[in-house]
């Protein structure tokens, strides 16, 4: 079974490589599993997911990310995507002038062997069926990518792309934010349909609400650039009840305990 292994990862902004944002993060995701990461604002969740996807603003200063046992650090962003990684953006870009249909077509075409041409009829059939599933109006195919989309439409469009590209591992950065309750249900259903032996998911979220719909196998708390606590789905409930101060206090306690035993 393929794995995505994040090993002792340090990530900094390319402009300030000596100031790590992600500070020694370890996490292994297997296909078939859904992991949720929760953590306060500014703790490095988006930085982690963008660095894994190969965003040029970030550098991995040490550690490794292995996809199916092979390091992806030398790969360009597009190669990583074709290797099976998908990033559902917290803030998806608007691309005026590039239609959803042409954009997804180029992305599907990019996964075909050299010289192989996309079957346009089959492509549209598939695209429409995924759109219907996510209750996205078919008229959206001719609209420019994310341009003038509402927050919820953007997020649904991210899921549409994920459904079309069938990644092995999907990093979903706050896909629930900006969704009303109906949209949340639709998006969650979409993800649950894709869920299975062929897909591993890393779900970044602030809200327990999402985890009622997409029930995670593991929940991790990220704080100050690393994972400080892991558990099952009950951890999210506990977090919701007690807040991050609880985690901070635990951390302080264990730190002072460490000092005491030293």
């Amino acid at each position: 079974m393929p794995t995505l292994e994040i090993r002792d990862l340090f990530v900094a902004l390319a402009a300030t490589p000596d100031k790590p944002i992600v500070k020694g993060l370890n996490l292994t995701i297997r296909t078939g599993e859904v992991h949720a990461i929760m953590g306060p604002n500014g703790t490095g969740k988006s930085t982690l997911s963008k660095a894994i996807a190969g965003h040029p603003d970030y550098v991995i200063t040490s550690g490794d990310v292995l996809l199916g046992g092979k390091s992806i650090l030398e790969m360009e962003a597009d190669e990583r995507a074709r290797a099976g990684l998908f990033l559902a953006f917290q803030y998806p870009s608007e691309i005026p002038g590039v239609s959803i249909a042409n954009f997804l077509r180029a992305a599907v075409q990019a996964r075909l062997a050299e010289g192989e041409e996309i079957d346009a009829t089959a492509y549209y059939k598939r695209l429409y069926s995924k759109m219907d599933l996510l209750k996205i109006d078919r008229k959206f195919t001719s609209r420019s990518v994310n341009e003038g989309f509402s927050g919820g439409e953007k997020k649904r469009c991210e899921i549409l792309q994920m459904a079309m590209l069938e990644p092995t591992f999907s990093l979903m950065d706050e896909t629930d934010s900006g969704l009303d309750i109906d949209a949340l249900r639709i998006v969650a259903e979409g993800v649950n349909l894709m869920r299975g032996e062929k897909l591993g998911v890393l779900l970044i979220t602030h809200y327990q609400r999402l985890l009622d719909y997409i029930v995670p196998d593991f929940v991790h708390v990220m704080y100050d650039g690393r994972i400080v606590k892991s558990g099952d789905k009950t951890l999210a409930l506990e977090l919701e009840a007690k807040g991050y101060d609880w985690v901070k206090q635990e951390l302080a306690l264990s730190a002072s305990a460490a000092v005491a035993t030293a």
């Binding site: 965003h55 040029p56 360009e76 597009d78 995507a81 870009s93 990019a110």
Partner: peptide, 30 residues
């Protein structure tokens, strides 16, 4: 050219040259 747009396309598996072609075509579409 907008670096975020370029990255968005590449994050979907589209190679840099094709990403640029798409962005240039978009620019020319008008």
């Amino acid at each position: 050219i907008d670096a975020e747009q370029e990255f968005y396309l590449q994050a979907r598996g589209i190679n840099p040259t094709e990403a640029r072609r798409l962005l240039v075509s978009a620019f020319f579409e008008e």
